[in-house]
């Protein structure tokens, strides 16, 4: 464990908590893409099946359980408890356009053809693009609530910090995993536009609105 990975995990945790609190406190999931949240639940489910086979550390297991539980709690809030506030008219991204290529890619480029390894590879590819329905929704409505933009920033920053962690591990542990690195870089690039607007607008106290 190094500081970059720890900070990345903290950002990830903060993002999830911010999203849950936003929905809970405002009693509304307006502006949140349920489809992105379905994809994230799928990402955690397929990646953390190794919870039952591989023990790394208490930290590792606890975080996995938190990510799994919070992703399903988020789905419950969006699709059950606060369903009336779910903005399905703007959440129109076709997730099969992400799921099918991710399945195919994980069958083509993987470390090993074992079920756990294939599921992990799929989860890495899917995570890279899972935010697209949310970004699509923001681009459709042209705006995001400030709290939603904080959520997106923390979620994007997490993988960016992981990239620094991989560079660090490359030099200190001679460790490199091509699949995670390439997917992680693509994932971070998808947030780049958002990062720019977040830093130039939200951090200066303005609302997050896309340029007309």
């Amino acid at each position: 464990m190094n500081i970059f990975r720890l900070l990345g995990d903290i950002c990830h945790l903060v993002a999830i908590i911010v999203l849950l609190l936003k929905i809970w406190k405002t009693r509304s999931c307006a502006g949140i893409s349920g489809k992105s949240q379905i994809l994230f639940a799928l990402v955690y489910t397929t990646r953390y099946v190794d919870l039952f086979f591989t023990y790394v550390s208490l930290y590792n297991s606890v975080m996995k359980v938190i990510f799994l539980a919070s992703s399903y709690a988020t789905l419950y809030l969006i699709y059950v408890k606060f369903k009336a506030t779910y903005d399905f008219n703007h959440d129109t991204f076709r997730i099969e356009f992400l799921l099918i290529p991710c399945v195919i890619l994980s069958l083509l480029i993987t470390h090993d053809y074992s079920p756990v390894e294939l599921l992990w590879t799929f989860s890495i590819y899917l995570e890279a693009v899972a935010i697209l329905p949310q970004l699509f929704m923001v681009s459709k409505t042209g705006e995001a609530e400030t709290i939603t933009s904080h959520y997106l920033f923390a979620l994007g920053a997490y993988r960016a910090l992981y990239i620094v962690n991989w560079i660090y591990r490359y030099y200190t542990e001679s460790f490199i995993d091509g699949i995670a690195v390439v997917a992680g870089i693509i994932q971070t690039i998808l947030y780049a536009d958002f990062f720019y607007l977040y830093i130039t607008k939200v951090l200066k106290g303005k609302d997050f609105k896309l340029p007309a």
Binding site: D9, H12, V56, N60, H111, R169, Y170, E173, D177, A180
Partner: peptide, 10 residues
Amino acid sequence: YQRYRPKDEL
């Protein structure tokens, strides 16, 4: 260089 799945990462 070791190339494998980083099992310790989340």
